[in-house]
Write a protein that binds this DNA or RNA. Sequence first.
DNA 1: CGCAAGTACTTTACCGGTACAGATGACACG
DNA 2: CGTGTCATCTGTACCGGTAAAGTACTTGCG
Lengths: 358, 358
Amino acid sequence: MTRVTLQTIADHLGVSRMTVSNAFSRPDQLSSELRRRILAAADQLGYPGPHPTARALVRGSTGAVGVLSTDPFRFAFSDDVAARFIGAVAEEIEPTGLALTLLTAAEVSGVAPARDVAIDGAIVYSSDAASPAVGWLRRRRLPLVFVDQPPDSGIACVNIDDRGGARASARHLLEFGHRRIALITPAAPHPGPSSGPGVGADATVPIPFPASERLAGWMDELAPAGADVGFVFQQHPPDHGSPAIRRVLASSLRPTAALCYSDAIALLVVREASALGLRVPEDLSVVGFDNSPLMQHLEMPLTTVHQDIAGKGRVAAATLIDAIRAYRTEAPVPGRPPQLRLPAELVVRASTAPPAAA
Amino acid sequence: MTRVTLQTIADHLGVSRMTVSNAFSRPDQLSSELRRRILAAADQLGYPGPHPTARALVRGSTGAVGVLSTDPFRFAFSDDVAARFIGAVAEEIEPTGLALTLLTAAEVSGVAPARDVAIDGAIVYSSDAASPAVGWLRRRRLPLVFVDQPPDSGIACVNIDDRGGARASARHLLEFGHRRIALITPAAPHPGPSSGPGVGADATVPIPFPASERLAGWMDELAPAGADVGFVFQQHPPDHGSPAIRRVLASSLRPTAALCYSDAIALLVVREASALGLRVPEDLSVVGFDNSPLMQHLEMPLTTVHQDIAGKGRVAAATLIDAIRAYRTEAPVPGRPPQLRLPAELVVRASTAPPAAA
DNA sequence: CGCAAGTACTTTACCGGTACAGATGACACG
DNA sequence: CGTGTCATCTGTACCGGTAAAGTACTTGCG
């Protein structure tokens, strides 16, 4: 039972393969009568339509766009911020008839999706810009959109104003009178296991991209104000409590407020605090980041920095679609690739207040 | 700036195209010295590696597997049950080096992903089995796995014991002494807008597949017991309240218990009930389905029917991978495609109790 | 009536690779 | 020294389509 191809149908009807191809792809190129007969024969022979791969090869486009994530897939679906982003991308892509292909950065047994899977373009999302996978995508000269990545003038970028948002949140705490503040941020897995909290600016620990911007924003305000900052390095998806956070909250000179990289981490801080009998915000102010939809329904409405995650996804998808379209028409230089920066705004809710002893 | 291909490198080094191909794909076929030179030249010329589409065409495999969903993408990422399933699929797929392609059922401007995107196999997930998209996938003779679909002996299926689980939940209510029970289930969008609640078995409304099984399970127990059942048709993702549910709960002869198609719907019922001043479970017992992880942290721990969604995803992915592997080795008849049925178990929590007036 | 302009189909070439069957030369062995 | 084997590289065909140019047969029209 060999494969049914255009040739099968052509032979069956005694016409040329090209005519059969036209019956499917360019109906105006043949008489409607013959077309009808061809389609009928195709149906009868069980021809599934032109082979996608063959068509992609000759047309030069595959009908799929990728989303690369350096983090494992699990992340994209368990973390509701990531899921919302990808969902928005998918939603924006949907009416174009493109499929969305999730690419991992890993290379297993010689196969690396970012190098070996056929796509028309990709969004680089929660990825290490230095990873080989990103390199492969670039080398393929695919239309790309970087999201939450360090700006790269050669590639379209969509970022939010992490730094500005972080600055606003730090200012908010300063205005309340806080001077002893914990900064809780993920760090590259480089240093020792769950590196303990350090006090003072520790420039030696590498902070991955969007976190580094948020940290910079915090410090923009805190440093000039002479605030007493302490760092806690906390990897992003904390499952069951954080010893590092607990240690800081339990210390005698504990901070009166915490600025957190994300709402997920902020939630963790709130939980650790209440486990220690600390009240939020009376004993500890907590600020998150993202304005994650899941946190909206919490007992403790979180002061946070809002970013429009779905909007970011839609913009990223739209930018990619534009880039692909430009690429197809071989527009020589479509201007500089767009460098977008979406706003991030402080949302004050119930988790922040002036420190107890003012 | 024309494309860099194998030929470019071959010309540049004065070797045959085939040798360059071998340098990438079959290193044992040439001297390591020449290979080194070829790779160096490739690197220098910016060759991104063998063209995925061309390779896919000749090899007959693309390195991507699809997930078809008839529902729009948004669903897959906002509904946490669907997200968890896809996440588990992705996780299981990841170590194989395959990419995961999300396919929509829609056909826009002549392009239909299920027909036109190159994949090696697919999981048919929350789809209408009768949709054209499913037909295309079948016609392509791709390795397929149906999940939560009506069993099809020709295709590998993964289902859970919806009917058994539903039966257990109905029995649970009967044992508590409930006799007036609302059944809340999605229905095909066929009848009028938000079709009102009917009382008694209404066989004319088409119920889509997994819901029909659950309904059958409920009725298996309720009918022989002579319970007084009323139907409420509620489409799955209810955003802001449900008039239909409210109407039923507000009626003079309101049910003492509700069996719900999903936890998401059960949550809706709980909310509508408390909006009406009804206490759960004192005034109304509510049973969900899925044991959705999001519901675990609710104020009102929900009695529900547990299914292992992640497990279902992993099994589906593993089944698909097996099928693809078998397909590749052209195993003539790999036995009947597996028909799996995963367990569904009642989990009794706080949302059910005996009816107030016993 | 002769020629330009369709219409309907066919031929040829190519997309960018890989499989497979040589071709070539070095080297070992009897 | 003939020849078999191995390692290394090349030539050809083909994967399943499509673009573009070509052929043959109408048809319109001055």
